[in-house]
């Protein structure tokens, strides 16, 4: 019993230590505001933001808009990830396909996808389709590049071993190449997840009548910065927890991989 309590206390302490920088950040923010170092119209105090957050939450405004944003981000992410893996595999499989796709990937890789949102708005109108298209495109490229890399770095001896053990050429893809690419695919997925939030919200700020992005933009325009900050905080929280959730899934799927081992076998303080 005492052992259990001790463990609980230890984990609580660990947790406190980990969030200490955040508390310190909030404290500095509060001091800056209460000392009136800045105009409080431009930087609302953390307490005002918290109050706005509670208000947004209880009125249901957050829930409605968050659902819309998450729907757009998720659909774009899933489509982008699916197509990205497919394109990455095809690039590794076929020389013709690779030669055709490589310049397009290279050309669009560093293009900020948000620059295309006004164009998408023109094509797809205001709302879901524009946001989903922007998320899709942003998620596509990290998936393509990482999948391709993962397949390409499959050790020759693994392929040879599989062949000598009776694996037919078609079976090599699901049994060796894609398995070997999985750690890279999950790296791509983590990057894509971040992009999905960025692009969904950017698209909503430019071309939408609803969603968290629209909420942020609207409160910013009105100058109600406490509400704007509250909406931003909400995005930060959701994005943080979805990233954690993806990490948990990754660790489950990649138990066999070295990176998973490192995370779990790290000595605890």
């Amino acid at each position: 019993m005492t052992h259990f309590l001790g463990k609980l206390l230890l984990s609580a302490t660990c947790w406190m230590v980990r969030i200490a920088p955040l508390i310190l950040f909030g404290l500095v923010w509060h001091l800056v505001c209460s000392a009136q170092l800045v105009n409080k119209d431009f930087l609302p105090s953390p307490l005002a933001v918290a109050a706005a957050f509670v208000d947004l939450f209880s009125s249901g405004e957050i829930a409605t808009n968050l659902t819309i944003t998450l729907f757009r981000a998720a659909v774009g992410l899933l489509l982008g990830a699916g197509c990205g893996v497919w394109i990455g595999v095809m690039m590794a499989r076929s020389r013709h396909f690779r030669e055709y796709v490589t310049p397009i990937v290279g050309g669009t890789y560093s293009l900020p996808k948000s620059a295309l949102i006004p164009l998408f708005a023109l094509w797809f109108g205001i709302g879901n389709l524009t946001a989903i298209a922007a998320v899709f495109l942003a998620c596509l490229l990290p998936m393509v590049v990482n999948t391709y890399h993962g397949v390409l770095t499959t050790p020759k001896v693994l392929v040879w071993s599989a062949e000598a053990l009776g694996t037919r050429e078609r079976e090599l893809w699901p049994r060796v190449f894609i398995r070997n690419a999985l750690p890279d695919i999950f790296t791509g997925l983590r990057i894509a997840l971040g992009f999905s939030f960025v692009l969904a919200i950017s698209a909503e700020m430019i071309a939408s009548t609803n969603g968290i992005g629209k909420l942020i933009f609207m409160y910013g325009e009105n100058g109600t910065y406490d509400y704007m900050f509250a909406a931003i905080c909400c995005v930060v929280i959701v994005a943080f927890f979805s990233d954690r959730a993806l990490l948990v899934v990754t660790r489950r799927v990649l138990v066999w991989h070295e990176s998973g081992a490192f995370e779990r076998e790290r000595p605890r303080p």
Partner: peptide, 18 residues
Amino acid sequence: GPGTDRGVVFQEYALFPW
């Protein structure tokens, strides 16, 4: 080509890590 009549063992083990 490769065949199951010839079993191979490599220096780098070549086990399927997954």
